[in-house]
């Protein structure tokens, strides 16, 4: 599985407006809806499910990255949005640091393996300092998409 297999090109948000964890999650789920990956009537329900998951423990993963996620029947395949927050968002991460990169995942409940492989893929790339640095420096959705392709091809 590659990043470009599940990241939705139309759901890349290169500059999140300043705000909270909730506003970041809302903006990203909205981008998935606008890209046609989820239905408008499911949007609020998905936001609520992701926020509920955050209550169990922050998905701040360290290195200035968070991976909010939920399993939801509204999609039949793993999908993800990516957003950058230049000013940082407080995700209540374990390391106490703000979050600058957010990967938001929605996966079908009956495909746990795809969810695991999505998390594995993201985590593996996040261990690469070049990937994190170049991602944070990206200015446009096109820049981010190109970076994902380079990461998929092990060109970083």
């Amino acid at each position: 599985m590659k990043l470009c297999d599940f990241v939705v090109p139309g759901a890349i948000v290169p500059e999140l407006p300043a705000g909270t964890k909730e506003t970041a999650i809302r903006a990203m789920v909205s981008s998935l809806q606008k890209a046609g990956s989820i239905k408008a009537e499911d949007e609020e329900n998905i936001v609520a499910a992701i926020l509920k998951r955050e209550e169990l423990g922050s998905t701040g993963i360290g290195r200035g990255v968070a991976v909010p996620h939920t399993k939801h029947g509204s999609t039949d395949k793993l999908i993800a949005a990516i957003a950058l927050a230049k000013d940082g968002v407080d995700f209540a991460s374990l390391d106490g640091e703000p979050v600058y990169i957010v990967f938001l995942l929605v996966s079908p409940p009956d495909r746990p393996g795809d969810h695991l492989r999505g998390l594995e893929n993201i985590s593996r790339h996040l261990r690469n300092d070049h990937f994190c640095k170049f991602l944070r420096q990206s200015k446009t959705a096109e820049d981010i998409w190109e970076l994902l392709k380079e990461a998929d091809n092990n060109e970083l």
Partner: peptide, 13 residues
Amino acid sequence: KSLLELLTLAAER
């Protein structure tokens, strides 16, 4: 001790 490293195991049931 690293969440990031543990996630790379992608271990299914």
